[in-house]
């Protein structure tokens, strides 16, 4: 293994760094509210909401992400010009749809973990559901949601590499280009792994910070 070679190719791989990070951040930005909405729909007393959200989860979690990417990029434009997205935004759309299905489960299980007595105390005080979900239930579920939520985020970060298949110039795509040009896989793959590890490590620390921030004062 040639450490000097790793250092040489780092800058070229890092040209895709910002694309990877932007894929990740946009996907989190869209998937979080979508996941929250899906979670609340699945918890709704209204059947149709539950069914739609349940169907969404069953469908999206039941097929590979690569298929969703292909679908958004290649198949969706057949429904009209408006659906013709750039590779980057196609990847963001696919990652958002995919991530939301998992975040919905994380959020839903967090809400279910809140003591029934909390709902009852809030209702007995005459609060509306909207109010107590926002002020009483969700703030308490955040603590429970953080670990699975960041787990999903770490997965999404790694899965941005799949955007390679629809030609988004993120880090993995640039790395495969180096590999085919240099006829050498060992160092480029190692360099790539180091960068992903650094990014996921940041998320692990973020998780620990969030867990500390939402710990109940005792």
């Amino acid at each position: 293994m040639d450490v000097g070679f790793i250092i040489d190719i780092m800058p070229e791989i890092l040209e895709g760094f910002s694309t990877t990070v932007r894929l990740f951040l946009w996907s989190m930005l869209f998937s979080t509210p979508l996941g929250l909405a899906l979670a609340l729909m699945r918890l709704s007393p209204l059947g149709p909401f539950r069914w739609v959200a349940g169907f969404y989860g069953w469908l999206v979690r039941g097929i590979p992400l690569i298929l969703i990417m292909f679908y958004v990029f290649f198949a969706l434009p057949e429904f009209g010009e408006a659906f013709l997205l750039s590779p980057f935004w196609s990847a963001v759309a696919a990652l958002s749809v995919w991530t939301a299905s998992y975040q919905a489960e994380a959020i839903r299980s967090g809400v279910l973990a809140v003591d029934q007595g909390q709902f009852e105390a809030a209702e007995a005080l005459g609060m509306t559901k909207l109010h107590y979900m926002r002020r009483i239930v969700l703030p308490q579920s955040v603590r429970i949601i953080v670990p699975p939520f960041t787990g999903n985020a770490i997965n999404t970060l790694k899965q941005t590499s799949l955007a390679t298949v629809i030609t988004v110039p993120e880090m993995s795509l640039l790395t495969t280009r180096i590999i085919s040009r240099e006829f050498n896989a060992l160092e480029p793959l190692l360099a790539l792994a180091i960068i992903y590890l650094a990014l996921t490590t940041v998320l692990v620390f973020a998780q620990q910070g969030l867990e500390r921030a939402f710990r109940l004062k005792a």
């Binding site: 007595g117 105390a121 809030a122 007995a124 005080l125 609060m127 002020r135 009483i136 308490q140 109940l216």
Partner: peptide, 25 residues
Amino acid sequence: MVFQRFNLFPHMTALENVVEAPMAV
């Protein structure tokens, strides 16, 4: 209503527990 197991809102101080409903409701 006062419950057997208190059911205070654990993420709020005593004062916040008491003011929440009058302000919201």
